[in-house]
Design a protein around this nucleic acid. Structure first.
Length: 744
RNA sequence: GCGAGGGUUGCCCAGCCCGGUCAAAGGCGCCGGACUUAAGAUCCGGUAUCGAAGGAUUUCGUGGGUUCGAAUCCCACCCCUCGCACCA
């Protein structure tokens, strides 16, 4: 043993031995297997402290399982599909100052190399080489024979197979979807294009179609169930309205909406044509038909109606909406004869449709009276609205008046109800921003519908049901995240799965489109098994046929038929299948928590859609982020700490120890100087302690009988080992380190 | 707004599921000591407040409640972080 701790010497020595002996090259054998995967890194930069944490957790679990006697496979690939690498190539080609600075200074790319990385291909080549080098430097126990890049032609064959099979199951559908759009640039706006309103999201409203003669007055609402309680509409006498011909799915109608709403409609998936201006006065005092109840409702004037919100016409539910109740009450003694309204508005009866424990029949009336809200201009009206909506949404149940929806929880009924409204043409979906968005060019943005888009049909209830079943059988680490996963499955809607730009695989049944990058990284863990044979030279591109994948991954068909199809030896085909059967399913997929609502979810969806239940994933683990001296990392802007620079400066063991001991599980870790320095001292101390133990071991008489104190020592030791094992099983690396090092 | 997580002693953080042994683990910092020519490293002790000490007092976001007893259980409220989609 050396006198002083010299990490780089020790590390180089052992890493060399590992590579030469191929000790981490896993092959099926008699032992029980453990297949652990970590999401492969996206290569628009060097690996950083965030990767370091996630990958080190994976490596620690892999090594621990090996110690416990498992045959462990820990593979790694490289993700390059999508647009960011293309964007980065453009920025480097144009010598964007910030990019050049960040990538040279923070990503550590030598100044003579950086300018040459001006195409996506060169970037991929460079970073995949660097990433592997870095991961070897930190000593990950990866089977490198199985590495691949998502633009490999062989990988594309695998992705094509997947999408053809998903398509056959009708899980890929065509449709349109809303995007944030700048009418001036004629382009979707991305977050960095936005001048004001970065926080804005697209909100789904339902337009309820109230009819008067041959015209429709659509009202936008977030609560379509309240249509059953509408007593009247609100029209603002001071707003400009227009009549338009609106056509959608072959149905032609004439709508009256505010001028602002008309502009928004022109960007939707409707054909819209201006007919004429409509004076507000002419649509006040008219009697319209409620499309769900068939009842007649009157339109009344209200100044609170904003032309830029929704359609500029509002439906009134005074029993449940404080503003509506107040506006109605404010009109009780107003002379409305100039609108031709002569009836006594006090005769308008409130219609109650939601039963909620905290309130009586008319929650809006009740809260307005209890809080003493004076009028629709009273600021407390807003507060009253929030309280009523919250109570009704969470605790409310629909009453008899809603017919077949009676007894359903308000919080659960919206999707079903909306679907019914649309299919009976009582309503339509309408998208709007939660707050106005202004593009960097100064134009105010709209919601535009992109047509002919391909979707993964994640909203499919049967598909979701399978995912729930899969989740219920899985181990989730930490356990608190189970509810999070369940919520996200519930929340997930259809997802656009194709793009025009970027790197990736073309959609096999519509070659104009590229498969979106999150959709091509869902079941690739199975590809690691095939990649090992491609690396060996046993498989060529042409031999990766549909029947090959069907047999190897699903067990469908038989080796002879595959052999006839591909020219492969049937024995080899069986061998590959045998490898798949041995390694699959994935025993643990461990990842940063940012991937919970997207990648990890899609990982489950695609597995349950394609594979037999016995090959569904067994466990998911989630870990937190890493910040630097309290600051969030950013690949494109900095700050960033690369894995390579951390290991160069501190050595692999100190880096690994520190990143795993500074925070537990889903907590975020902060990388700071004082912390890493203390980790360095801890390893130093341990090294000299180990040295002492070895030295004293040489002097001691080992045949001597154990004394009481030795037994105590052994007991303590065994206790720490047990605690460490328990902690590692739960992937509590901090706990494990504290236990295993407290014995020194 | 919705969903998830969190607010603990100078700081980071453990404990909370399974109430008492909790003035509350561990690390960092700080203070004192040992070692040293000295510094660093290492080791020992201390680190809410008052007291020499036994001990006493006030603490675990805020306010209530349950209980003989609450950081831990229940209710309400406040604050913080993250996600909310076609972007990896």
């Amino acid at each position: 043993m050396e006198q002083d701790y010299k990490p780089h010497e020790i590390e180089t020595k052992w890493q060399k031995k590992w590579t030469e002996s191929g000790i981490f090259q896993a092959e099926p054998d008699k032992r029980e297997k453990f297949f652990i995967t970590i999401p492969y890194p996206y290569l628009n930069g060097n690996l950083h402290a965030g990767h370091t944490r996630t990958f080190t957790i994976g490596d620690v679990v892999a090594r621990h399982k090996r110690m416990l006697g498992y045959n462990v496979l820990y593979p790694m690939g490289f993700h390059v599909t999508g647009t960011p690498i293309v964007g980065l190539a453009e920025l480097i080609a144009s010598r964007d100052p910030q990019t050049m600075d960040v990538y040279e200074r923070l990503h550590g790319i030598p100044g003579d190399i950086l300018p040459t990385l001006d195409t996506p291909e060169k970037i991929v080549d460079y970073f995949k080489h660097e990433a592997e080098k870095a991961m070897r430097m930190i000593g990950y126990s990866i089977d490198w024979r199985r590495k691949f890049t998502t633009t490999d032609p062989t990988y594309k064959k695998f992705i094509e197979w997947q999408y053809i099979r998903l398509g056959e199951k009708d899980l890929i559908v065509k449709g349109s979807h809303p995007v944030k759009w700048c009418p001036n640039d004629n382009n979707p706006v991305e977050d960095h294009d936005i001048l004001y309103g970065e926080e804005a999201t697209i909100v789904e409203y339902t337009l309820i179609k109230f009819r008067y003669k041959d015209i429709v007055l659509p009202c936008a609402t977030l609560r379509p169930e309240t249509t059953y309680g509408v007593t009247n509409l609100w029209v603002n006498p001071d707003v400009d309205y227009v009549k338009a011909r609106v056509e959608k799915d072959g149905i032609e109608e004439f709508w009256v909406v505010s001028r602002d709403a008309f502009r928004k409609l022109t960007f939707t998936d409707r054909t819209v044509e201006y007919i004429e201006d409509v004076p507000a006065k002419s649509i006040i005092g008219i009697k319209l038909t409620n499309p769900v109840t068939g009842e007649e409702v009157i339109s009344l004037p209200a100044s609170f109606v904003r032309p830029e919100n929704g359609s500029g016409i509002v439906m009134s539910v005074p029993a449940h909406a404080p503003f509506d109740y107040l506006a109605l009450r404010d009109l009780y003694d107003v002379d409305l004869s100039k609108y031709g309204i002569t009836e006594d508005l006090r005769k308008i009866e409130l219609i109650s449709l939601i039963k909620v424990p905290e309130f009586g029949e008319f929650p809006a009336k009740e809260i307005v009276e209890n809080m003493g809200v004076t009028s629709q201009k009273d600021p407390r009206a807003e507060e009253a609205t929030k309280i009523v909506y919250r109570r009704e949404f969470h605790g409310g149940v629909l009453k008899e008046i809603t017919g077949k929806y009676e007894g359903h929880a308000v919080s659960k009924i919206k999707d079903i109800l909306t679907k019914d409204l649309i299919s009976s043409n009582a309503g339509e979906t309408f998208y709007e921003f939660s707050e106005p968005i202004v593009c960097r060019c100064g134009t105010s943005c709209v919601v535009n519908m992109v047509k002919g888009q391909w979707f993964l049909n994640y909203s499919n209830p049967e598909w979701k049901a399978k995912v729930y079943r899969c989740l219920s059988q899985m181990r989730i680490i930490p356990a608190e995240y189970r509810v999070e996963f369940e919520n996200k499955v519930d929340w997930l809607k259809d997802k656009a799965c194709a793009r025009r730009k970027g790197l990736g695989t073309r959609l096999p049944f519509d070659k104009e489109w590229l498969i979106e990058s999150l959709g091509d990284s869902t079941i690739y863990m199975s590809y690691y098994i095939i990649a090992r044979f491609i690396e060996k030279g046993d498989l060529t591109l042409e031999q990766l046929t549909l029947s090959f994948f069907d047999y190897v991954l699903l067990g469908k068909g038989d080796p002879k038929a595959v052999s006839a199809d591909t020219g492969l030896d049937p024995k080899l085909v069986e061998e590959i299948r045998r490898h798949f059967v041995y390694w699959y399913p994935v025993d643990l997929r461990s990842s940063g928590k940012d991937l919970v609502p997207n990648h990890l979810l899609f990982f489950l969806f695609h597995h349950v859609a394609l594979f037999e239940e016995e090959n569904w994933p067994r466990a998911l683990a989630v870990n937190g982020f890493v910040s630097l001296e309290g600051q969030k990392m950013s690949k494109s802007k900095g700050p960033i700490l690369t894995l390579e620079s951390a290991v160069s400066e501190y050595g692999a063991d100190i880096t690994r120890l520190y990143i795993l001991s500074t925070a537990e599980q889903t907590q975020d870790a902060d990388w700071h100087k004082a912390g890493i320095d203390s980790a360095r001292r801890q390893v130093d101390r341990f090294y000299s302690f180990a040295k002492d133990v070895i030295e004293s071991g040489k002097r001691a008489n080992l045949s001597m009988e154990l004394k009481q104190i030795d037994r105590w020592m052994l007991s303590r030791m065994q206790n720490y080992i047990r605690e460490t094992n328990i902690a590692l099983d739960a992937i509590q690396t901090r706990e494990a380190i504290q236990n295993s090092f407290s014995c020194s």
